[in-house]
Design a protein around this nucleic acid. Sequence first.
RNA 1: GCCGGGGUGGCGAAAUCGGUAGACGCAAGGGACUUAAAAUCCCUUGGGGAGCAAUCCCCGUGCAGGUUCGAGUCCUGCCCUCGGCACCA
Length: 803
Amino acid sequence: MTQAPNYDPQAIEKKWQERWARDRVNEPDLDHPRRPFYNLMMFPYPSAEGLHVGNMFAFTGTDIYGRFKRLQGHDVFEPIGFDAFGIHSENYALSVGTHPAKLIPENIETFRRQLKRFGGMYDWRHELSTTDPRYYKWTQWIFLQLFKAGLAFRKQAAVNWCPKDMSVVANEQVINGYCERHPDTRVEQRFLEQWFFAITKYAERLLRNLDRLDWSDSTRMLQRNWIGRSEGAELVFDTPSGARITVFTTRPDTVFGATYMVLAPEHPLVDTLTAEERRPAVNAYRREVQAKDIVSRRVGERTKTGVFLGSYARNPATGEAIPLWIADYVLMEYGTGAIMAVPAHDKRDFEFATAFQLSIRRVVQSDEPPPSVTEDGVMVNSGQFDGLPCRGAQKKIVAWLRERGLATSQVQYRLHDWCISRQRYWGPPIPIIYCDRCGPVGVPERDLPVVLPLIEDFRPDASGVSPLARHQEWYFVKCPQCGARGRRETDVSDTFLDSAWYFLRYPSTEFDDRPWDTKRTKTWLPVTSYIGGNEHAVLHLLYSRFVTMALQELGHVHFEEPFPKFRAHGLIIKDGAKMSKSRGNVVIPDAYIQKWGADTFRMYLMFLGPFHEGGDFREEGITGIRRFLDKVWQLAHEATLTPAASPALPATVERKLHQTIRKVTADTESLDYNTAIAAMMEYVNLVREQGAGGRQAVEPLLVLLAPYAPHLSEELWEALGHDRSIFHAPWPSYDERLAAAGDVEIVVQVNGKVRGRLTVSRGATEAQVVALALKDESVRKFVDGQPVRKTVYVQDRLLNLVV
RNA sequence: GCCGGGGUGGCGAAAUCGGUAGACGCAAGGGACUUAAAAUCCCUUGGGGAGCAAUCCCCGUGCAGGUUCGAGUCCUGCCCUCGGCACCA
């Protein structure tokens, strides 16, 4: 036998990466595709540490799917770009004392090299970076469209202020009261004028559409939770002062048990409702609460505090006068900022009532001591509603109060409007000019982009004003409407706005006169398949959906959901913990690729565990993949020696081949890459065992393997005499009959316990199998002469004899 | 507290509809080849027990019950763990 060349991954991977680039195999015809398939992965943030294995895990999984679709005959567009603006980049730049405008291009260069090295099927013609003025021009343009439509607006609001970042951060970037990027820094409460996007206007649609999106359930659940829909009613409580207090409640059936009321300390009616003699105490309490940061108010001390206002409201159901209080456990941002307190049936109200000795009245019968929150009980102490199940009573009570104008059905959402202002430098300037006469005016579209000036002193300070304000010649500008001296908005926009539309830009990167080309967009969007991490379930994915919906309403795109199909991948952890620089457990793939080659490393990551679950990175298993690829290498080189018309495969190998094609096809489609790889391994083991190599056994295998190990498959495909890329080959088809042919082993149970195995031909009847089973010695031993009372037969699988 | 994943050998994991638990791989042990090692190939490998042996029996998928001819899978109640939300009315 001729000596096969050694498998040298470094050499063949270089060879094929160069050839793919030369022959433009990864560049579909964007204008005339026959079967367009937009295969998208979440683009990376180009950190200084470079691509880590977590990125590579996600990108490999996406790339395998793209290559699989390519082999199935689709024109696959798999673009790549960089999410390079943002506080994260800026903080890093500050820490190393280099300007981000210098640092980011270097990082991107590293990422490019790594992404090319691992063999991603990227169309580099359409690379983008969010920091490119050619890109963020259109980020600003989107802001202006939303501004014109009234969907971007300014609002004085309690915002989260991170003292480390020295900037406002969105609710989504606050984790348990701590800054997402500074887990040891508590976020403070500040009142500032900020730009918001009106995402809450779309809450219902964002929620409802989830039902018809083909998304991972886990992701949909996270979004549902985040949007936080509650059904209930708004009830009106009159006061002697004439002021009416509206409350939101999910339990209008308990209104007879409302024995006091609580307003948020910031509630606008507090002044009106405070009795003169209580004013000092009330004001002191309000100051005390304001001094607290959002965190200690929300997640810190849960001890109930509050003060009595010295006045009363009338319970609309009972007509009783009930005392009015303010307390910081009621939040101005949710509902109406005021509640009716039902201490018998709400845990928080109960704690408060107990602390301040307020009366507690049960209105739902229950065996538990108060507070009982059950909705299964029967109404008591509730006038004409006594005896009704409280679920049914909800509607009746609302209807009864509605007649007097004291109730309306109401839906509340937990979702807040999206605060996009950042008092920082490294982002797209918000394209607004303030004029004393005209107010905030949008920068005219012909003047876009508002270029981020290259300033050396970009360090933020605690003033709440962006560093851009220090740049005088940039700051002062003529009002586009009246020509008077105006001032530019100095805040930049949230980096999540950059990433909320990048998928729209990819197919149209060469156009500078439009954000996206209508025809290209009609051809390629919405995105056919999107794969990414669940850490973006409520940030990026929700924002992108909102921006797309708004753009659709404004007539700029033809669809309202950008990602009809989304799959969440798992997380690669290390030693049981999330990889992070601070833990020092970040794994960089370069050394592994250097040692084992990209193909081995790609497959190793996919074999680690289920793609949607992720797994713990440990190096040990990698040799198993290399051994497998060595075997494929050897089989293929042996096959080059067999004639083109090689003899037919033995029946067992042929059957296994068809079963393997079936399984690899199904598993790759569902992203179950670990079991697809296992199936290919089984097949190779069988072929070797049977000594049944040859072209017929190997060529279909190489195509199945091509998405996983593209370089190796190309090399072997060429060695077998093909002169076009393996990615022009058709995905193999299987014959269900051949996959099923042959004998089957049937398990014989007696009373549910396995007592024997029979080999019969496929499709054997129950009678035949029973007859055979009763001849089997070990089966007879357990039947032991007793009459068979019942038989259960599962075709081609199992027979159970019950005696 | 609420909402979701998940708990299977020494390890990573498999197991369409309820139908042979542990595929595939790692590690480990034994053997072959070799002067030797590496590589490669072959065998063994959930636990316990019986037997000279081929082989056979019992137990086993977090815990306790249940449904079923049959449960890793379905139901009830717990425990642990990971993730999300959280004074959200």
